[in-house]
Design a protein around this nucleic acid. Structure first.
Lengths: 215, 215
DNA sequence: GCTTGTGAAATCTTTCACAGCA
DNA sequence: TGCTGTGAAAGATTTCACAAGC
């Protein structure tokens, strides 16, 4: 009954997590209950049920959710049906790491190109492809029907790269450069700052330490 | 007046973002208004003011916030005063990328060791250190007074590594392996799954595409 | 006049609790 | 009986709007 509704942002951010748990469980079990799924995902069971209810009524009362079927529904709803072509701009350490990242192929993401501004890196093998000059970006993007671009350049280059990507017609950008880039409304943008993760962790650590009274 | 209160989780997750903007602005201006800070951080100005009010009343009405002073207050509140020693477990591509990640040194994080299970990698230079055998983990952790551990191993090894880390007395863990690890309550844990970022991006892209009517 | 700091309102998210169905 | 699906309650977060202060 909730099937047609808009999915809350908080739910969207948890669906990939459920997907991960479901894929790990797949093969060993046919069905999974909200309770088990919640336990493995580290959330509350009611939350799992509410989240999944936004996709539709895909569970069976008294039984649980059919794993394979649920995986397909979540994938469909996240827009992860087909294979997606990813290009990586910036073949430094992080770019190389992502190009050969194990978590991509199994999830439908295929790295089809990697770029860098440094001629010394041209031709070097990174993951399933080779480094190409950033000047050929626009052309290669079209040739290989790229869907998603990942920016792993140093911060000062990020905005210029984003501009070229947008100009070349890319619609999704994942930015790992530790600086904010601005894109037009029709481009989906997600920013990830690895340094920030460590800073937040520091706060958690501190707030765990402060009120401790156990012995 | 709000200075002593508990800081909401949502606020904590934005403070590092403000820190980034402030550090970029530092030097070129003395003070910054909530409006400018909000614009550059991509949030609402009222939100910036409310967030900063949890730290105390550090702004000046009619003027704004003194940049250097605000940076120090945020750092202090996040527990980022001193230098923190980071060890990286798993010297694959991602581990190497993090070891030489530019975003760490300027933020007070120093990589003091890197480990791997593969003897072929022992001694290899990664960032400011060399790869050591994971069997020496506990000993090295204590020797170099490590504060934070980053797990960049393949998924199957992550839990075992986390167990060793906890046993060796580490109090903060950042896990990049695409699997959930479990640690005792007194350990601060943060999980980052790079694949999930791409999946969420796919959803955004799709939801942008769906209701479009512009021309 | 300009910008902060903050109650109060609006909105979003989580959790509860139980009816409904296999 | 067991587990989903979901209204309704509780809680958290965001936004508004304006008094207070430089």
């Amino acid at each position: 009954m909730a099937a047609g509704r808009r999915i809350p942002e908080a739910t969207v951010s948890r669906l990939p997590l459920y997907l991960r748990v479901l894929n790990e469980a797949n093969g060993s079990v046919q069905t999974i209950s909200s309770e088990v799924l919640a336990l493995r995902a580290g959330v509350n069971a009611a939350q799992v049920r509410k989240d999944l209810s936004y996709l539709g009524s895909y569970g069976t009362r008294g039984v649980g959710y059919e794993v394979g079927y649920l995986v397909r529904q979540i994938n469909r709803r996240l827009g992860l049906d087909g294979e997606r072509h990813v290009v990586i701009v910036g073949a430094g350490n992080l770019g190389q790491a992502l190009a050969s990242y194990g978590g991509f192929p199994g999830r439908g993401f295929q790295v089809v190109a990697a770029f860098d501004a440094d001629p010394a890196k041209f031709g070097r093998v990174v993951g399933p492809t080779r480094v190409e000059p950033v000047s050929s970006l626009a052309e290669v993007l079209r040739q290989r029907a790229a869907d998603i671009a990942v920016i792993t350049t140093p911060a000062p280059a990020a905005q210029a790269v984003a501009d070229v990507l947008v100009e070349a017609g890319i619609r999704s950008i994942l930015n790992f450069a530790p600086t904010t880039v601005v894109v037009p409304d029709h481009v989906a943008l997600r920013q990830v700052d690895l340094g920030i993760e460590l800073q937040i962790l520091s706060f958690y650590q501190q707030s765990l330490a402060t009120p401790v009274a156990g012995f």
